[in-house]
Design a binder for these strands. Structure first.
Lengths: 359, 359
DNA sequence: TTGTATGCGTTATCAC
DNA sequence: GTGATAACGCATACAA
């Protein structure tokens, strides 16, 4: 037998409506003396408002959905955590779904979240297109695409990505600067634009320096350190002269590191390595991972911010639209040199980290 | 203007109730001919049922809440992923909250989830007690405690943990077996029972072998590879003779690995290392991490299972109770020797992994 | 200032 | 087998 507004009202000797007014601070005032009685009654009964009922009435759930390929991947984990933080700060609750590179499951989650009437949706696409774009548009629920650029996203409120191509170039140029001449590349699935962009950056850098980036020096694998380890072994053995590797994700770089060890090659002495993402873990491998860091927290925070703006706007004037939401917001990346490329390996202590850390 | 059951009913020339019956497959039958018209109308209008309204009516949301200390920690990430999988399979949606070792925030999330009328709650406690146990009990919402044992949890439907003490002993005995004689320990915050248990296991093993485990060989840090790196440096420098280290979490072991490198010590040659958890990442460090593996997936799956049972039971007979839910379910652990303890480092290839992997 | 009444979209209990 | 109708808990417009 749950305690409801009726019970509170009865105990306070007033009406349920008044209880609402004191709880919501409006839209009407309530006599100080009545308010006291109401608060006392709430306290006494341990009354807790039912968000479900409020959601139904207000047509607003104060929840947002987050669909992520795999929260087990450190990069997505950091992204998800930052999204959750931003949502929490704004008073929203997060519904989480792992799509697991399975477009079917991604669609299923989007549908479930829409049925749950989330106020907005943050989507990190698993495939090259968002299969649910149609349903999303039809539902009128605002949504943003995070981290990965996709086509055919008409109704989207915003797309937020890092400057992948530039990052790929930065990484490769840095390897060249270290005097490396034969630079291989470990990349992710070809249907993900991010990775193709990073590979383009790799080609940009090599081309600009008079070297050609042949397919021979490229391996495509899943975004998994295990798959990357196998690919790196294959690459290193098939192309003996390689003295540098650009891995398009930190996760894969961990596998490359392992492959080097297994083959008896030293990093960076024999093979220098630069990767991409800038996850926390990259600073504490052996050696430290030189990486092109993304502004993970900013990406997530801005994504939620864009989403909440769209939700607000939707509430006021359903017709209005943000300025060209189809044009992606591109976030800058920055090279963080550490040991794996041949730069001095900076020892970042935990205490220094904690003071200078996030927020 | 959302399309509702009324619209479907009108188009199909029937009543909203009938639409419910065809959608829910009960509790009453419906004439095949009517059912066809209803389905056609649903299709035509692109009707999607409103879960919020259904939840309010049914007093059942088909959601469960998960409160986790930090989904960025690989161990919790794997746990969370497994919980999500189990929930998904059972048709439940997951609400996620990061408490971040902040009991205040944990309480806040529990409250929010209760207000959202989750059907059940999975809690990985951040503190030594569950501050919200009272509210939980009062609400009557079933909940389980995962991974960490805590006191004063009267209303809990179940507690699921690994055999921490035994694991600590396993790890340490293995180091002894390798001929290591001075074995230090890096542990986590003293208010977490898990870590204390693992430390007890460490003492057990040392005591049983006639060696004494002095406080000098112990360092307590946060569960962070960064903090652990600092602590390990301190430990290794303050106690020169150390030839083995037991780290109570894989996460911390990563920091120990780094500390060893920085001090010019080789692992396992100079210092052998065994840790605890068995996260995916442990198999691909350099060297591979010897670790006492938990059955992460089973822990999560059983946790959800216990929770769902309690939900079912609650639905049928609110009074009934499971058999002594206060007694924790203890899961076995298993030693996975790899390179860091001195065992041969098995190279687990991605392909072999994928076939033998989860599910 | 306060109480009353209606509706949000569903589900389930009614008579028919 | 079917259609009307009440209720879930809350928010607010409206009458008092």
């Amino acid at each position: 037998m749950p305690v409801t507004r009726r019970d509170v009202a009865k105990l306070a000797g007033t009406s349920p409506a008044v209880v609402s007014y004191v709880l919501n601070g409006g839209p009407r005032g309530v006599a100080p003396e009545t308010r006291e009685r109401v608060l006392a009654a709430i306290e006494e009964l341990g009354y807790r408002p039912n968000r479900i009922a409020a959601s139904l009435r207000r047509n607003r759930t104060m929840t947002i959905g987050l669909v992520v390929p795999d929260n087990t991947n450190p990069y997505f984990a950091e992204l998800a955590h930052a999204v959750e933080d931003a949502a929490f700060d704004a008073g929203y609750t997060l519904l989480l779904g792992n799509a697991g590179s399975d477009v079917k499951r991604e669609t299923s989650y989007v549908r479930t979240f829409l049925d749950s009437r989330v106020d907005g949706l943050v989507l990190i696409p698993s495939g090259e297109v968002v299969a649910s774009a149609g349903e999303l548009a039809e539902s009128g629920t605002p949504w943003v695409v995070l981290d990965r650029l996709v086509d055919h996203v008409d109704g989207v409120a915003g797309q937020l990505v890092s400057d992948n191509r530039h990052g790929g170039r930065l990484a490769t140029e840095h390897l060249l600067w270290h005097g490396r001449t034969r630079i291989g590349c470990i990349t992710g699935p070809g249907h993900v634009a991010n990775f193709n962009e990073r590979v383009l950056g790799w080609r940009d850098a090599l081309g600009g320096n008079g070297r050609d980036a042949t397919a021979a020096a490229l391996r495509e694998t899943e975004i998994s350190r295990f798959a990357a380890r196998d690919a790196a072994r294959d690459l290193l053995q098939a192309t003996p002269g390689i003295d540098g590797v650009f891995a398009v994700t930190d996760e894969q770089a961990l596998g490359v590191l392992r492959a080097l060890m297994e083959l008896g090659l030293r990093c960076p002495d024999d093979v220098a390595l630069v990767s991409f993402d800038g996850i926390d873990a990259s600073s504490l491998t052996t050696p430290g991972l030189s990486t092109v860091g993304q502004s993970i927290r900013e990406l997530a925070t801005s994504g939620v911010s864009v989403l909440l703006d769209a939700i607000e706007r939707d509430d006021d004037a359903p017709a209005e639209r943000a300025a060209d939401p189809a044009r992606p917001l591109v976030f800058p990346v920055h090279l963080t040199p550490r040991g794996s490329c041949g730069c001095p390996d900076v020892f970042e202590s935990a205490t220094r980290r904690d003071t200078g850390g996030r927020r």
